[in-house]
Design a protein around this nucleic acid. Sequence first.
DNA 1: TGGCAAACCATACATATGTATGGTATGGAA
DNA 2: TTCCATACCATACATATGTATGGTTTGCCA
Lengths: 208, 208
Amino acid sequence: MAYTTPGQTREKVFRLVRERILAGLPPTVREVQRAFGFQSVQTAREHLDALVAEGRLHKEPGRSRGFRLPFASGFALVPLLGQVQAGALTTAIENPEGYLPVAPPAAGSELFALRVRGESMIGAGILPGDIAIVRRQPTADHGEIVVAMVDDEATVKRLHLRRGRVELHPENPAFPVIAPNPRALVILGKVIEVRRYFEEPAVVEASS
Amino acid sequence: MAYTTPGQTREKVFRLVRERILAGLPPTVREVQRAFGFQSVQTAREHLDALVAEGRLHKEPGRSRGFRLPFASGFALVPLLGQVQAGALTTAIENPEGYLPVAPPAAGSELFALRVRGESMIGAGILPGDIAIVRRQPTADHGEIVVAMVDDEATVKRLHLRRGRVELHPENPAFPVIAPNPRALVILGKVIEVRRYFEEPAVVEASS
DNA sequence: TGGCAAACCATACATATGTATGGTATGGAA
DNA sequence: TTCCATACCATACATATGTATGGTTTGCCA
């Protein structure tokens, strides 16, 4: 064995780099050097190059802090809206209660989040207080769970399209099916995810 | 007005920087310059300095890519484990199916995610296929939902502590209460969040 | 013994990057 | 008009950072 156990230091280097990347800022070569007390930059570089060669890290040549994890890290923030009144969606998005981290959405799609009120979707496992992550879109397919404007308020229901009829179905027998005028129905978006937080803080604060 | 509407370009600069930071790598001053076609580095710098002065961005002087969002810390990725066998938690964490973005956990706490199997917690609104975000801890309080090892397998149940007894309660009358030997009970952690994805891709891929 | 690879060190260099100083053009207000 | 703030440009400089070359030490193995 050489100065240290083979692979042992390298493993620690990998973990440091991974941790820094996940924390939001990849390290520079010299930051790695300092973190391990190497006397030479090159020592850090050799470990890093080896990790890249092993495929454990990716690297963008020439770029400072150009280390990435092999899987696409990164995420997006979606604004958490409280309640949404008709026509006020844009306004609400500009004044969110906070932000939630989500996996990066497909290009061009716009996400927002809403707190679910009421027990109308209990049958679908959506409880009061749950948070719905919604992709903004004006239409949806039969059977999908959507956010729609009903009585000047945003509501979460399952969309039914049958024989030219459009209906919003609750998932709770105690609630009525809503059959709005198809021309008057405004769909805000499709629910792509539901979350329930048992512990705070759950949300990134809206301002510093 | 000067060359452009006041504040308009600055707003775009802010959004670009925010997007880049969330994507995992803050931009350099010159990258901002190029992105907006500024002829001078200084123009980009002035916008960035102004954003820092306004408190919309934070900055670490002298450091490359030293821009941060005011709600600092960034986000974390938690490993999504499939199934967990007894004693194999550490191994499972090193070989995750993928990663999920979460709000940054408190210092020192370790999170992981599990897919929920079975219908034993339907009463708590936790369905098969849901994903539980778990904070690793060896104990929990009465009434909390925990992940525990039962019959060499990880299971999600509500913890009951009564008169010296320890019980794992399902939230479904069709399932039995589990009353393990208190000394043999291994609690992996506490469920702090539950998610349900209606659309893929839901998870950051584990490899490129 | 010699060869070899791993781990580490020393130094140098080109480029990337943050920073500073001074200037120009536009529009609004005193 | 003059003054000023905003937005932008041009250029220079110090530092940070990525990269390259060659050397040293240690332990393994033929």
